[in-house]
Simulated assay, not measured.
Amino acid sequence: MPVVQFTANLARQTSAPSCEVSGSTVREALDAVFAQHPALQGYVLDDQKAVRKHVIVFVDATAITDRQQLSDAVRPQSEIFVMQALSGG
């Protein structure tokens, strides 16, 4: 099953443990994580359920291309990494 991991800065905001979930697309995998940890969804997705502009999602070290529908394919052994951009000086 795919493994979804979150950066430490997301974990500081809310519970963001590494999760092993089922799913064949990024949407299915993230929905499975959000079912277990609902507070994460607001940090990762906007009100249209698209990836927030300050968040990037990688599948097997490649950034996803579909930030709206999250239809990028996920294999059973995939690693999904969710990163929140940091800014400041």
Rank of each mutant, 00 (worst) to 15 (best):
M1G: 15
P2Q: 08
V3E: 13
V3A: 01
V3F: 06
F6W: 11
A8Y: 09
A8T: 13
N9V: 09
L10I: 12
A11I: 00
A11S: 13
A11T: 09
R12C: 01
R12I: 03
R12M: 07
R12K: 14
Q13Y: 02
Q13C: 11
T14M: 10
T14R: 05
T14D: 02
S15A: 14
A16P: 00
A16V: 01
P17H: 11
P17E: 12
S18W: 05
S18G: 00
S18E: 13
C19D: 00
C19T: 13
V21S: 13
V21K: 06
S22F: 05
G23R: 05
G23A: 13
G23H: 08
G23I: 06
G23L: 01
V26K: 03
V26S: 03
R27A: 14
R27W: 03
R27H: 09
E28R: 11
A29S: 15
L30A: 01
L30T: 01
D31L: 11
D31V: 00
A32F: 03
A32H: 07
A32I: 04
A32L: 03
F34M: 08
F34C: 04
F34T: 05
A35C: 00
A35T: 05
H37A: 04
H37T: 04
P38S: 05
L40N: 02
G42H: 10
Y43C: 08
Y43M: 13
D46M: 09
D46L: 07
D46G: 10
D47P: 07
D47Y: 09
Q48I: 07
K49N: 15
A50Q: 15
V51M: 10
V51C: 07
V51H: 04
V51E: 06
V51Q: 04
R52C: 12
R52M: 11
R52Q: 15
K53Y: 02
H54K: 09
H54T: 10
V55N: 05
V55P: 14
I56L: 03
I56T: 09
F58V: 08
V59S: 07
V59N: 12
D60R: 14
D60G: 11
A61N: 14
A61D: 13
A61C: 11
T62Q: 15
T62R: 15
T62C: 08
T62G: 12
T62I: 14
I64T: 04
I64W: 04
T65N: 14
T65K: 15
R67D: 05
R67C: 06
Q69W: 02
Q69V: 11
L70V: 08
L70N: 04
S71H: 06
S71G: 15
S71K: 05
S71Y: 02
D72H: 03
D72A: 03
A73L: 11
V74K: 06
V74Q: 04
V74Y: 04
P76N: 14
Q77W: 11
Q77N: 14
Q77L: 12
Q77T: 15
Q77K: 10
S78E: 13
S78M: 06
E79R: 10
I80M: 06
V82K: 01
Q84L: 14
A85L: 14
L86S: 14
L86H: 09
S87F: 02
G88M: 07
G88S: 08
G89F: 00
